[in-house]
Amino acid sequence: MINEFNGTSSNSSPVNVGPDERTISLVAGVVLILLGLAKRNLWSLPAIALGTKMLYRGATGHSPIYSLLKLNTAVSTHPEAVSVPHQQGVHVVKAITIQRSIEDLYQYWRNLENLPHIMGHLESVKVIDVQRSHWVAKAPAGLSVEWDAEIVNDIPNEVIAWRSVENAQIANAGSVRFKPAPNNRGVEVKVTLEYVPPAGNIGVAIAKLFGEEPAQQTADGLRRFKQVMEVGEVTTIEGQSSGRK
């Protein structure tokens, strides 16, 4: 049971409870235990157990439920963002189902110059000829990474696959597949991406800049692709008013 944390977790318990909450946890823990001891009914045992947990939480600064919900009050950031551990290369597969004809979906993607509109990390793609294209990806601090790619497989309304040509700054390959979903539920679109950063420190740095959250980036890109194909524009709140200065 999720809530029955018994204080025996020796694996990873990083601090994810802020200091104020830790103090309150300690106090609340004591109060609950006392209350639980004073009353004798169905609720006294859970109350004592909870009190014990609050003490644990106050003392260690770790809330197992926060980990479960991926929330963290100890650092003031958004609740998402768990970085993919950096390994040898990155492999991402993401799928989405879109209500639009397979022809339209394929056509949009086959014009690679459309991709920066949906893939947030791409600055531009210039088509050189039927096979070749030049890609520029954004990186933080105004930097960018560029490479040439070629289409290696193209079956209309089924699959498009590409890969960077030799000597690219960052070797990468990708494909997109289109398949009708059962019973007219749209088209299943599956994207596969692979990056192999060059060896050495520079490679690590580039890989980091290039795709800190490749899985998230790809998922977001597919969501935008769906928005463009289903409703004709990318859903946004960018530029709206707020009371933030």
């Binding site: 909450e21 609950l32 609720w43 109350a47 909870l50 609050m54 939480r57 809330s63």
Partner: peptide
């Protein structure tokens, strides 16, 4: 009210239970 009320109130304010 009562202990059940207290139980959930503490859990919620501590974010052990949302």
């Amino acid at each position: 009210g009562g202990l059940p009320g207290m139980y959930d109130k503490v859990k919620q304010s501590m974010r052990v239970e949302t």
